[in-house]
Write a protein that binds this DNA or RNA. Structure first.
Lengths: 105, 105
DNA sequence: TTCTTTTTTGGCAAAATAACCAAATGTTTT
DNA sequence: AAAACATTTGGTTATTTTGCCAAAAAAGAA
């Protein structure tokens, strides 16, 4: 792994890390149906609003979402159209894992 | 987020977490070209062999790779055919991020 | 202006992760 | 059987991540 390759994989890992959290992945999934304001996530998930805000910052810094303030609310939008396909791959891993485990029955 | 949904997103996050590390992602990418033995990774990456081994364990427990011992060597194979597509999505995020940054020039 | 609402920021403690070294395991070679 | 090789496991330490609380910011309403 040469230095350029290394930087490349570090950048990729950063994006994946941003999505590698249950709450953040859920948020991203919600956004794939269209924009939402922060308050909607706070209502739906049982964590402190400051925690939601920090998760959104992580997603934003990774380039996964973008935000826009309108009035007192902040709305977030997904920047990546490939998220659903992306998640299908993740689900395929989980399904394969379950299947290979049940082979032992 | 109900309990079932929560477990689902936790499972997905676990898979993503496994891939969200430069070295592990690189290993997975190498395996998409076919199986490799641990020693090949040890030679190519500048970290302790025990570190490589632990990374491989993480990938295995997440259901991303499988291993087979032949002689004194252990060979790893990718269990997911969608990895390359998956990485294309990650690269699209990075590219979009770079583009939106250069808008400010 | 003051109060209220919505979101972000700063600080802190607990938990998880990563990398190293040393030791153990399993396999082939001598 | 002993030595050599390839990999995993255990233990330790440093770093990162997570989530809460309190406080700050920004906007609108009273």
């Amino acid at each position: 792994m040469n230095p350029k390759e290394k930087r490349q994989y570090e950048a990729r890992a950063k994006v994946l890390k941003a999505l590698a959290h249950p709450t953040r992945l859920w948020i991203a999934r919600q956004l794939s149906d269209g924009e939402h304001c922060v308050c909607e996530f706070v209502d739906a998930v049982d964590v402190d609003f400051s925690t939601i805000s920090k998760h959104l910052t992580v997603l934003k810094e990774a380039g996964i979402v973008e935000s826009e303030k309108r009035g007192k609310q902040v709305f977030y939008r997904l920047k990546i159209p490939c998220l659903l396909k992306f998640m299908e791959c993740v689900d395929a891993v989980i399904l394969a894992q379950i299947e290979s485990q049940s082979e032992f029955l």
